[in-house]
Amino acid sequence: MNIIEVKNLSKEYKYNVKDEKRGFLYNLFNRKEKIVKAVDDISLSVKEGETIAFIGPNGAGKSTTIKMLTGILYPTKGSIKICGLTPIKDRNKLSFKIGTVFGQRSQLLPNLPLTESMEMFGVMYDMDKESIKKRIKELSDLFELNEFINQPVRKLSLGQRMRAEIATSLIHSPRIIFLDEPTIGLDVVSKKSLRDLLLKINKEEKVTIFLTSHDTEDIQSICERCVIINHGKIIIDTLTKKLIKDYVKNKNIIITPNVEFIKFPKLPNGMTYTKKTKSQIIVSVNTEKINTQKALQELIKMYDIDDINIDNESLENIIRSIYEEN
């Protein structure tokens, strides 16, 4: 069953532009409007329980799309169904089905313990006292909040606060959670712990995850599917694994010398040096021009090699090249 169904969705923004050739008074009374298409005719379906990365460069239309999906913004054209509801018309009903976390914005009461904010959200979602208590206990265990649940929120570390934000957004057991940059500003340990928790809620509570992030580690470790948007249009919608497989055009061959590298001969077409030092060489191989086996043979002929490693191109590079191509 599709939990998100988007058809031909567009959003236009209007703003005033002034005529540079005319003066202040003319521009004050004769304003021209310019229209910008932030989202341009996108269609998308998401099945219940899926984990989706909705990514794109800054200004691509990600946030505008999420804001339309959650009922904050009115679409200019197109239709949206989330859990069978139209967000802008059924905003109140929809809020019971979705949870949202915006990485840079807090919904918690800063001077009070986390339990107080969770209780307030429980009341907001019409939960009775017993259900709120039970759910806080479940979420505390799942998110390991017990060590700081009674501390004022302002005294929590950023990592603890993000765990608290996500736990609070799940108080009413939503079917989908929208996360906008949930790991922004976190250290590597906190990022890993948050990603593990998101995977856990997806598996244990069957919550559909719809995530935007500029951190490719978030995408790779959480999301099975990747939707890339640029200039308001969806340019790729595929499984994350397939994206990596299909778009890996380059492989990196890392070689270390028996003694040291002195000369760096010219490489055949399709092979380029990305690092040239006495102790290590990295060669980027374009697999569309030369296959890996042939490239290895060429390098063995040229150098006295002690060790060889072959790496796939990182997801970050793949995504960057997709953005650049589009």
Partner: peptide, 12 residues
């Protein structure tokens, strides 16, 4: 600062 979003995203 778009904090109005928080009010639109919750019921009541």
């Amino acid at each position: 600062n778009a904090t109005l979003d928080n009010f639109l995203l919750t019921p009541k």
